[in-house]
């Protein structure tokens, strides 16, 4: 168990040196400029537009980790047999999975923190340029809460990447499965909501309805972690809802990690 942290650190270091961070830095600088300049076009909604753009960039930046780093670092470990280097050190496969998850979480965290700082700088710059009455209703907490939930959403996706990488042998397949998870996770809630509407005039067979419900429970409901709109309109967050969402995310991650360990322990690493 005491090997989890060293694995996380080595994953974090290797991830950082893959130059992703430079990309994030450049992107965040562009974001500052863009958000500050473009929000001027929306004279009434300057704050709303800014928050919206910034939060979108934060979740986009976070997604770099599951799509570009996680698959590369995990499937690459198995494909190039770098994993032998770790496992030969009397490290259990469960420590390996947990260490990798922690390392990826650290990478996600650092990217999101950088983008968060960029966001705050952008908003500060905007207050200097645009009239003050635009920013009267501005509070930090919705921004922080929605960023935190976006972070949790990325962690959920990271945990599914771990599962996919522990059941497949190719990084291509793992990428495909992660992409599907992402798309389904963002649309399944809408599909179910549409089917529950009474007056759509479309007959939906019970079979399909049941399938959609099952998919809703199996795949992560990633759309739920997207609280951009609420933050942009400065709608108050219900603390109960946030707690529930947090619990949902954490339990989903636990289940994914448990399954990943379960399958990973049983597989050959030839």
């Amino acid at each position: 168990m005491n090997s989890i942290l060293p694995i996380a650190v080595i994953t974090f270091k290797e991830g950082l040196r893959r130059r992703v961070l430079y990309g994030v830095m450049v992107a965040s600088l562009l974001l500052i400029l863009f958000a500050v300049l473009i929000s001027g076009l929306f004279m009434r909604d300057i704050l709303k537009v800014m928050v919206d753009i910034c939060l979108s960039s934060i979740s986009l930046g976070g997604l770099l980790v599951p799509f570009f780093l996680a698959i590369n670092l995990l499937a690459g470990d198995i494909e190039n047999r770098t994993i032998y280097t770790l496992l030969a050190r009397n490290i259990s496969r469960s420590s390996y999975i947990l260490g990798k998850f922690l390392g990826l979480a650290m990478l996600t965290g650092i990217i999101i923190i950088i983008l968060m700082i960029a966001t705050l700088v952008a908003i500060y710059c905007a207050t200097l340029i645009y009239p003050a009455h635009n920013f009267l209703h501005f509070t930090l907490s919705p921004l922080f809460i929605s960023t935190l939930m976006a972070f949790l959403g990325v962690l959920v996706l990271n945990s599914t990447v771990l599962l996919w990488c522990s059941v497949t042998t190719s990084s291509f397949l793992a990428t495909l499965l992660t992409l599907s998870t992402y798309i389904i996770g963002h649309s399944v809630e809408d599909v179910v909501r549409f089917m529950n509407l009474k007056n759509t005039g479309v007959e939906i067979s019970p079979m399909i309805q049941a399938t959609a419900k099952a998919v809703l429970y199996i795949f992560p409901n990633l759309a739920a972690f997207d609280l951009k709109q609420q933050a942009a309109y400065s709608l108050p967050f219900v603390s109960q809802e946030i707690t529930l969402l947090g619990l949902y995310g954490l339990s989903y991650i636990s289940i994914m990690l448990f399954l990943a360990i379960f399958f990973f322990k049983r597989r050959d690493l030839p």
Binding site: I10, K13, E14, R17, R18, N80, R81, T82, Y84, T85, A88, N90
Partner: peptide, 15 residues
């Protein structure tokens, strides 16, 4: 207390 040397050793390229 085992030291294992793989056939095609692969270490982390950026470390």
């Amino acid at each position: 207390s085992i030291g294992y040397l793989p056939e095609h050793p692969s270490l982390y390229p950026h470390l």
